[in-house]
Computed example of a mutant assay.
Amino acid sequence: MRIGLITPEPGHPLLAATAALLAPGHVVEVLDPSTAEGVPDRPADVYLLKSRTAHALDLAQRLEGRGASVVNTAAATTLCQDRTAMAELAQRAGLPFAATRCVGSLSVWARSAVPLASPVVVKSRYSRRGDLVARVDDAAGLRELAARWPGEPVVVQDFAPNSGWDHKLWAIGDQVFAALRRSELSPGGRGPNLPLALAELPAGWADLVRAAGAAFALDVYGVDIIDAGGGTPLIVDVNAFPGVRGQSGAPEALAALTLRRATGGGSDTP
């Protein structure tokens, strides 16, 4: 079978390890969305979409139009880039997602002089590498942030007191992986991922991850959860095709999922 990787970084650890597993019996082709001139005349049996650029999404959409199987689909990947749409879908699906409101331009909001009743988390509305994620405690902090990010479209979530650790949960098909990482809102910034056995997760969290995947129509995805107290989960982000770095068994799970999609296997999510 022919397997395509839509990515400018075929050396990414997860992709490289997966390609090495698939290569002995299959043809693995790299399609760099930044240089691809168009859709191949004969699409591969399946494509892994490990890029979120406009070029990559357009390419994936055109491949789907030609009947190609793409993991994740262009539509599902696009949805996860808009944090307003993400929150709306999560709430409709009954997921415990952080209440999210869109306030438009950060600079306009900072000039509104509306006092902050309590700390909030401000995020770029459109998720991307190097985007804005910051805690704001007062109007002075908001003005300072607006000076550094003028005109940035943002969403706002009330700050939920927590331990300062994020639960980084990933799924490849039906298989869930987990780690702990210091929150990027922590004074020292986020550190490395610390391995976490699924048995150490609060009851029901792994199933919650799978439910999020089903709601967002994702096959390879990440769900960031904080413990809001007593094991109560609060989802703060969902992302399509994360790196899943350093997780034993992740390349094997992705290789198996890829072959299932290549042969017409349906989604693993419930």
Rank of each mutant, 00 (worst) to 15 (best):
V108F: 09
L169H: 02
T258Q: 06
L14M: 08
R148K: 10
L198V: 12
A36V: 12
R129V: 12
A36I: 10
H167N: 10
R83N: 06
R261A: 11
A60T: 05
D131Y: 12
V244E: 04
T263D: 12
S112F: 12
V28D: 02
A262K: 01
P161M: 03
L21M: 04
V114K: 11
H55A: 15
P40Q: 02
G265V: 01
L63C: 13
A20E: 11
G130D: 03
S34K: 11
A206P: 14
S118L: 14
R66C: 11
P187I: 11
T18N: 02
R101L: 15
A99K: 13
A54Y: 05
L196G: 06
R260A: 14
Y126Q: 09
V136C: 06
P33F: 05
P33W: 00
S69M: 13
E9K: 13
L142K: 00
L89R: 05
T100W: 11
W165Y: 15
I3M: 02
A90G: 05
P233C: 09
G231F: 06
L198G: 05
A199E: 10
T269H: 12
G249H: 00
L57T: 03
A228T: 12
V220W: 03
A240L: 09
A75I: 07
D137T: 07
G213N: 09
